[in-house]
């Protein structure tokens, strides 16, 4: 066996859980849903027959299935199917950014705190405690108040809000892991602090962190949709699931549910699917750690 295949050992066991498709049915369904959503968002122009912002006042609030409008039209006659698909782009990328950046910052902070302890830990942990006092949505709204509407401010706000969760989890996991004898064995083999903390201990706690990140993605998606719904995030007429729900309210009052229903279903499906997959990965991988 070559050196390359062994260096890939760490990623190999991580990947095995995904394409193996040997998981329980909900996991397979969830993975399929996520794959479909991501692919659809990526090739949106190819699979939609209307542009998402194309207003047609002659055909408002058409029910699903009529005249080429697969999911019907909203109160200004825009094709709901196109808006849900294009909306996926706007709705999925910011939460992804939030999750990725909050995890990167949070894990780094957490590992540093947990590993080195002392003053560093005491200082950073107080900052984290302080941030914990604010709900994510509130921080995001504060960011909007400071930097104005749009996607940037809420995204940054949520990164700030989510970092403490990841940091605290990483810190506790590192502290727990640090006391295990194999870590001391590494020290006695002459490995340095940074190598042990980031190259040896971090991979061992990664499964749990991964599961937490998946949950974080779900929260971020919901929070950003909520902000857009409140008119603080994505601005109309851009297609976004939160914006769509906000705009569909008028129709809802008139007794027409589907302009609100479909973006809601989209949010629900993605969030539930991500949580199921995240949970499963966490269980599967940490089972290996504990064994």
């Amino acid at each position: 066996m070559s050196a390359a295949s062994t260096t890939a050992a760490a990623s190999r066991f991580r990947l095995r859980a995904i394409p193996g498709l040997a998981g329980p049915a909900p996991v397979i369904v969830s993975v399929t849903i996520l794959a479909v959503v991501v692919i659809a968002a990526a090739i949106a122009p190819l699979i939609t027959t209307f542009t998402p912002d194309q207003v047609d006042l002659a055909a408002t609030l058409r029910p699903p299935g009529t005249a080429g409008h697969l999911l019907g039209t909203d109160s200004t006659g825009r094709d709901i199917f196109s808006r849900v698909i294009f909306g996926a782009r706007v709705s999925l990328v910011p939460p992804l950014l939030v999750t990725a950046l909050a995890s990167a910052i949070g894990i780094t902070l957490g590992v540093v705190c947990g590993w080195f302890g002392g003053m560093v830990d005491a200082g950073l942990s107080r900052v984290v405690d302080f941030l914990f006092a604010f709900p994510g949505l509130l921080v995001a709204m504060l960011a909007v108040a400071l930097f104005g509407r749009g996607l940037t401010a809420p995204t940054v706000g949520l990164i700030v809000a989510f970092t403490p969760y990841v940091a605290r989890l990483a810190r506790n996991l590192v502290i727990q892991e640090k006391s295990r004898p194999y870590v001391e064995a590494y020290r006695q083999q002459g490995f340095g602090n940074h190598t042990i903390a980031f190259a040896k201990v971090l991979p061992n706690i990664a499964p749990t962190l991964l599961a937490q990140c998946a949950l974080g993605f779900g929260y971020a998606l919901v929070d950003l949709a909520a902000l857009s719904y409140l008119g603080l995030g994505v601005q109309p007429p851009t297609a976004d699931w939160g914006v769509m729900v906000a705009e569909g309210q008028d129709a809802l009052v008139q007794g027409v549910a589907f302009p609100v229903l479909f973006p809601c279903i989209a949010v629900l499906l993605v969030v539930v699917a991500v949580n199921i997959v995240g949970d499963y990965l966490g269980d599967k991988l940490s089972g290996r750690v504990a064994a």
Binding site: A9, Y182, A185, R187, Q189, V289
Partner: peptide, 26 residues
Amino acid sequence: RSIRSGQVAMIFQDPRAGINPVRRIR
């Protein structure tokens, strides 16, 4: 560090605890 990594080696009482549980033997 050079003493630890090269000159002196240690064998622990409990090998199960002393070996990183998530790495292959290789």
